[in-house]
Amino acid sequence: MNTLTFGLTCLLLATFLGAGVVKGVTGMGLPTVAMGLLGAVMSPLTAAAILIIPSFVTNVWQMLVGRDKLRLMRRLWLMMLCIVIGTVLGARLLVVVDPVWSGRALGIALIAYAAYALFSPAISTSERVEPWLSPVIGIVTGLLTGATGVFTLPAVPYLQSLGLQKDELVQALGLSFTVSTVALAGGLLAHGAFRLDQLGLSMLAVLPALVGMWLGSIVRQRISPKTFRRCFLLFLVVLGLELALRPFS
């Protein structure tokens, strides 16, 4: 599946353009959309490898825009360290588990994230529990990232619960996703599952992802972010059901 055919080229361009648009509008969602769409036509292991570079580039961009990055790094460093540990451990599952079961796990992760985002009430984490809860969230996020290639749970709802300002939250998400991307790459390398041909496909996906983010920033000014977000989450539910209910070959 890694041979660069015309069909694969079109798939990558369309997938990362669409995923970039989602990230441009909502500030997140590029790995989630890309893993969901690519996971429908290839193994989650291959999809995760292709995701590495466009995810890294777009998330570093998001992380560096603003003045709060150093303060956020000091506050969240233990969570980030635990994300790295959990991701490297969890990546083993992507390597050894049957691709059908990996696809099912990915589908369940997409459904769980969308259901939480659609129906859960806003929660708040007190400063008293943050020192011990952050590493727990980091480990769980890392294990799920390594096993499915999706970075969102439970990191996104946890960061949203910390009472960060809007710009701080965007940077914190960028920091978390950047660390998760680097850790996933390290986990795949450690388990011998990241090859040079996948690196080329990953580099190919950077441009459409950046173009998509630019288009998404324009779309964000023209439509209701709440409506777009709801449609995006419902799309993830449908995609997750397709992956989770896929029959064995």
Rank of each mutant, 00 (worst) to 15 (best):
L199R: 05
E168S: 06
T145N: 08
G192F: 10
L184R: 12
L159E: 13
W132E: 06
L196A: 11
V129W: 15
A205M: 13
F177A: 03
I139E: 00
P157Y: 14
G174N: 02
I123K: 14
A190Y: 15
P157V: 13
F194Y: 15
S134P: 05
V206K: 07
S126F: 07
L169Y: 00
G138N: 07
M203A: 10
P208I: 01
P154M: 10
S202C: 09
E168P: 07
P121S: 14
E168D: 14
S202Q: 12
P154V: 09
H191R: 09
L143I: 08
G138L: 04
H191C: 05
L143T: 05
S126V: 10
G163A: 14
A183M: 04
F177I: 02
F151T: 03
L143F: 06
A205W: 06
V136C: 14
V140D: 02
T125H: 05
T125V: 14
A193R: 05
G142P: 02
L133N: 07
W132Y: 10
A205R: 07
A205N: 03
L144W: 11
Q198G: 02
Y158Q: 11
T178V: 06
A155C: 01
Q171F: 03
L201F: 05
A193V: 01
P135N: 07
Q198T: 00
V156L: 10
A193T: 04
T125F: 08
A147I: 09
F151I: 06
D197A: 13
A190E: 12
L188F: 10
I139S: 00
G163N: 15
I123R: 14
G138K: 09
M203V: 13
T141Q: 02
G142A: 02
G163W: 15
E168Q: 15
A185E: 13
E130M: 11
S161P: 12
E130V: 11
L184E: 13
L173P: 06
W132P: 07
L162P: 11
P131N: 00
S126A: 10
T148L: 09
D197S: 12
L164T: 04
T145H: 07
T181S: 00
L204M: 10
E168I: 01
T178Q: 08
V129F: 09
R128C: 04
L184C: 03
P131A: 09
L144Y: 00
I137E: 03
V206G: 05
G142H: 04
V179A: 02
I123G: 15
G200C: 02
S126L: 05
L207E: 00
A147W: 10
Q198V: 04
Q165S: 13
L188K: 06
G163F: 15
S120P: 05
G142E: 05
V179L: 01
S202T: 06
L189E: 08
L153E: 09
T125N: 05
L207Q: 08
R195Q: 14
G192Q: 01
K166Q: 15
A193K: 00
S134M: 15
